[in-house]
Amino acid sequence: MSYVGPDFDPPQPRRSRRRVLTVALAALVPGALLGWVMYEAVGGDGGSSGNAAVQPSQARSDTAPTDSTTSDDKPPGPTPTTDSTSAPAASGSLKGKVVVIDPGHNPGNFQHTSEINRKVNIGTNWKECDTTGTSTNDGYSEAEFTLDVAHRMRTLLEKQGATVKFTQDGDRSWGPCVDERAEIGNKAQADAVVSIHADGAGAGQRGFHVILPGKVDEGAASTGPIVAPSRALGERIAGSFVRVTGNAPSNYIGDGTGLVTRKDLGGLNLSTVPKVFIECGNMRDSKDAAQLTNGAWRQKAAQGISEGIVSFLRG
């Protein structure tokens, strides 16, 4: 997400071949992540982190949501353990389940710097309301990326019967602030909240990572009840993201697990429902950027995140 400020911010077995494969997949996820650690140790790229805030670029022509996940530019990495073009593994309806998708930043934030720079209470201290986010070197903004992935996720999750709500849909001139983003999920009594981002680290730093809430009990922040379910949500998303996209966990944070715990993010600290962030890749690395700007890959990213949510909600 590369904020300018610090707040950058198994399914139950069934006696069918499909569910057996699903359970086997869940068991293999830690191994898949460990395998990526070995891959990165042998041939991965390294580098130092860095952040950048930019203005939104001209919209890309391939941003329209599509159900197709076929791509000729499959990212490097091990072969997924199951067909990445399949529908979510678990069957049945998510009717009655509420998912809140939080597309990070807002395309209009750069025009409202005074508003987004004002401080809000995140429980432990005060942080900036929001930031502009980062972009690729060619100017494709994080805010454009997060909205596109969010739209694709909504289509997939609504097909499963879930009620999907957004914290913003490009329908407001700036924001919302991080405290309001958390409040939207809380008021919706969401069963799961996922905040979509892309990082702005240094070139050579690649891969995704999922940010989990740490245990915080200070001021307005009391995350104790959501720490365990949020971790379960994050683990399901990380495993599905590896399987569907074929992408490695981050080689610069998370020790190769794709999971990072933080206590300084208002969007997590103020949440009273299970919530995680996902940094889908590094916009400042040319290889990651080539994927993040590709519509077919974004569909895979949306599918990977959505399948993790579905798996979590079905227990």
Rank of each mutant, 00 (worst) to 15 (best):
Met1Gly: 15
Gly5His: 15
Asp7Met: 04
Asp7Ile: 08
Asp7Glu: 06
Phe8His: 06
Gln12Ala: 10
Arg15Leu: 14
Arg19Glu: 05
Leu21Asn: 10
Ala24Asn: 12
Ala26Asn: 05
Pro30Ser: 14
Leu33Arg: 15
Leu33Ser: 14
Trp36Met: 06
Tyr39Arg: 11
Glu40Phe: 06
Ala41Ser: 03
Gly44Thr: 06
Gly44Glu: 08
Asp45Pro: 06
Asp45Ile: 05
Gly50Ser: 07
Ala53Asp: 10
Pro56Phe: 15
Ala59Met: 15
Arg60Cys: 04
Arg60Trp: 00
Thr66Glu: 11
Ser68Ile: 00
Thr69Lys: 14
Ser71Tyr: 07
Pro75His: 10
Pro80Gly: 01
Pro80Lys: 07
Ser86Asn: 11
Pro88Ile: 12
Ala89Gly: 12
Ser91Gly: 12
Ser93Leu: 08
Leu94Thr: 04
Leu94Pro: 08
Gly96His: 05
Val98Ser: 10
Val99Leu: 11
Asn106Ser: 11
Phe110Trp: 15
Gln111Pro: 00
Gly123Ile: 03
Thr124Lys: 11
Trp126Asp: 02
Lys127Ile: 08
Thr131Cys: 01
Thr132Leu: 09
Gly133Cys: 09
Gly133Trp: 07
Asp138Trp: 00
Gly139Trp: 14
Glu142Arg: 01
Glu142Tyr: 00
Ala143Tyr: 03
Glu144Ser: 08
Phe145Arg: 07
Asp148Met: 09
Ala150Asp: 01
Met153Ile: 06
Thr155Asp: 12
Thr155Glu: 12
Gln160Lys: 15
Gly161Met: 10
Ala162Lys: 02
Thr167Pro: 11
Thr167Asn: 12
Asp169Pro: 02
Arg172Gln: 15
Ser173Ile: 11
Ser173Lys: 15
Gly175Val: 02
Val178Met: 01
Asp179Asn: 15
Ser195Tyr: 11
Asp199Ala: 08
Gly200Arg: 14
Gly200Asn: 11
Gly202Phe: 13
Gln205Thr: 07
Lys215Arg: 13
Asp217Ala: 13
Ala220Ile: 00
Ala220Trp: 00
Thr223Asn: 08
Gly224Arg: 14
Gly234Asp: 02
Gly234Ser: 08
Glu235Tyr: 04
Arg236Leu: 00
Ala238Thr: 07
Phe241Pro: 02
Thr245Leu: 13
Thr245Trp: 09
Ser250Ile: 01
Asn251Lys: 14
Asn251Ile: 13
Tyr252Leu: 01
Thr257Tyr: 05
Leu259Ser: 03
Thr261Leu: 11
Thr261Asp: 09
Leu268Ala: 07
Leu268Gly: 03
Leu270Val: 06
Thr272Asn: 15
Thr272Ser: 13
Pro274Val: 04
Pro274Asn: 06
Val276Asp: 04
Phe277Trp: 13
Gly281Lys: 15
Asn282Trp: 05
Arg284Asn: 01
Asp285Glu: 12
Lys287Tyr: 07
Ala290Trp: 01
Asn294Ala: 14
Ala296Tyr: 06
Trp297Asp: 03
Gln299Thr: 13
Lys300Asn: 13
Gln303Pro: 01
Ile305Arg: 01
Ser306Ile: 01
Glu307Asn: 03
Ser311Glu: 11
